[in-house]
Design a protein around this nucleic acid. Structure first.
Lengths: 141, 141
DNA sequence: AAAAAGTATTTAGCAAGCTAACTATATCAT
DNA sequence: ATGATATAGTTAGCTTGCTAAATACTTTTT
């Protein structure tokens, strides 16, 4: 039955993303940040002084989520907030030195996990896989 | 650069699982349950009277998570709890009629999403994909 | 210029996750 | 039989998410 294969693909996908998140979370804890915060920081590493709305867009999440994440990251000294000079509604987020220092180790952890995931997959298989993934992604939108 | 492909695979994977979770969550809201609760219920549909420890194992999560989920599901009338007769430490979880009725619509939603995900993928491609996914999964353990 | 509409962020309250620390019961060893 | 250890579950407190509602400031309309 073809249905069997389909089901296995979906379950496999769920287990992989579940386990990846677990592993990544665990490795980020060593750096004193939580999974998801790395994604926020990665936007700041590209460029500081971003508004919370821009972070929402980048993380594809709702404003209250950003409020909480920013609060936590600020309390732990990775970022600081400053009100915009021209528009008193917007908050601009900046990296502290402590936040800047996190870039290399986080990127290392990310790369490490990526290599673990694809370890046994040959280059030509990776091309096929990448293609199929992109097509599945398109199906969802 | 091969690195590019690898990165795309990983990011694609993240986006797919993110979007799938979002969509599935949204469709489950119509049934008045939350994403994750369906997984707990699916264990009960196989067989009632399970302990919370068994649910932990099935959901691969920690005991406090089960405590909360079970509390929420009980408050909403999908399940009920009964202390084990022989061991006063353990709680056994049973489905109410309302909980039993959820099985078909939840399974339908699940199948619907699976079809959406694999829509444009040909049978022979699904075989290859399933194989590659299984290998990636093995890499993580 | 004042009212209305729009935008950025926060608060409150919920669920899924986690860890650490606790309670209650059961079993095992001395 | 009593003390030590193990097991099942709960509570408290945290983070990531959400929605709905509130606040504060800006822009548009009239």
């Amino acid at each position: 039955m073809n249905d069997m294969v389909d089901c296995e693909i979906r379950q496999s996908l769920d287990r992989i993303s579940f386990q990846m998140r677990r592993d990544y979370d665990e490795s980020l804890r060593e750096l004193n940040i939580y999974v998801g915060q790395d994604n926020l920081l990665s936007r700041l590493w590209v460029g500081d002084g971003v508004t919370q709305m821009q972070l929402c867009e980048h993380l594809k999440c709702e404003p209250p989520t950003i409020t909480n994440m920013v609060k936590s990251l600020e309390q732990n000294g990775f970022i600081y907030r400053k009100r915009d000079e021209h528009d008193a509604r917007v908050m601009r987020i900046y990296l502290t030195d402590k936040g800047k220092e996190l870039q290399k180790p986080v990127e290392f952890k990310w790369k490490q996990q990526q290599e673990k995931l694809l370890h046994s997959i040959l280059p030509e298989e990776r091309l096929i896989l990448g293609e199929l993934m992109k097509r599945m992604e398109r199906n969802l939108f």
